[in-house]
């Protein structure tokens, strides 16, 4: 069995239902995402359109994050999922440096790396990933790539020639595919990030890497003082305090 994912971007309407479902299912803390939907505006007025691209871990067959992890916290499951064992993770961030898709983040509550696992815990119970269930237009197609009769295999065969992966030049062999994407949506260098053109400007990033809740000393003291103060409420307080770290995404 080799599980894979396909997103039909022609169907995606950018409702972010998948993003919310993922957040709720996996209790993803504020300022971090396992799955997020990127909006890109294309064309020149009046010929403009907006495209939506859900982005998550690509569960590569040749995963750089798995290779660089010094303690096998990132590992393959038998079904091809690149899973993460946060109890073993040492928080070196090597995986964040290795992932060409920027799909891994440092969880500010556990201080360990985390990412999309295709909801491995749900799959183990015979359920679909939360984002697949939540999608109102069935743009997320999930299944066994080795089964010729699975939905995803049939979809890939039906759209052969138009199925794309992100950054094929990285030779990571992703098991996450897109239909209806283009260079402008899948290549981060093919679009611009212009200050002032975001739907939400002055986005506050929680600088959890070394912030006042998780300074270097805190990392050493954490096992003795517990993590009670490091929930979403405290992160909101951290973000809204005067010395919160603000920066624009992109340059």
């Amino acid at each position: 069995m080799k599980l894979g994912f396909l997103v039909d971007l022609n169907l995606c309407m950018g409702c972010k239902g998948c993003e919310i479902a993922c957040k709720v299912e996996n209790e993803v803390p504020l300022s971090t995402w396992r799955l997020r939907v990127k909006y890109i505006d294309l064309g020149i007025f009046p010929d403009t359109s907006r495209s939506f691209t859900p982005l998550r871990c690509n569960h590569c067959e040749s995963a750089p994050c798995e290779r660089i992890c010094p303690v096998s916290a990132l590992h393959y499951l038998e079904n091809g999922i690149v899973n993460i064992d946060s109890a073993r993770c040492i928080g070196c961030a090597g995986c964040m440096m290795a992932c060409p898709y920027g799909a891994i983040y440092m969880d500010p509550e556990t201080n360990t790396a985390d990412k999309c696992t295709y909801c491995a815990h749900r799959i183990e119970s015979g359920m679909m990933p939360a984002c697949v269930v939540a999608c109102p237009v069935e743009a997320n197609i999930f299944g066994d790539l080795e089964d010729d009769h699975s939905n995803i295999s049939l979809y890939i065969m039906e759209h052969r020639g138009a199925v794309q992966v992100r950054k094929p030049e990285k030779h990571t062999s992703p098991t996450h595919f897109y239909v209806g994407g283009g260079n402008q949506t899948l290549n981060p260098l093919a679009h611009q990030r212009i200050e002032g053109y975001n739907l939400f400007n002055n986005i506050t990033h929680l600088d959890h890497v070394g912030d006042k809740n998780h300074g270097i000393l805190d990392r050493f003291l954490a096992p003795f003082v517990g993590h009670d103060a490091l929930d979403n409420k405290s992160l909101i307080e951290s973000a809204t305090s005067e010395d919160s770290h603000e920066q624009e995404g992109g340059h």
Binding site: Y39, M96, F200, I203, G249
Partner: peptide
């Protein structure tokens, strides 16, 4: 390419 990101938080 007349493509502008209008919603994303990509940089960690």
């Amino acid at each position: 390419t007349q493509a502008v990101v209008t919603l994303d938080v990509p940089i960690q």
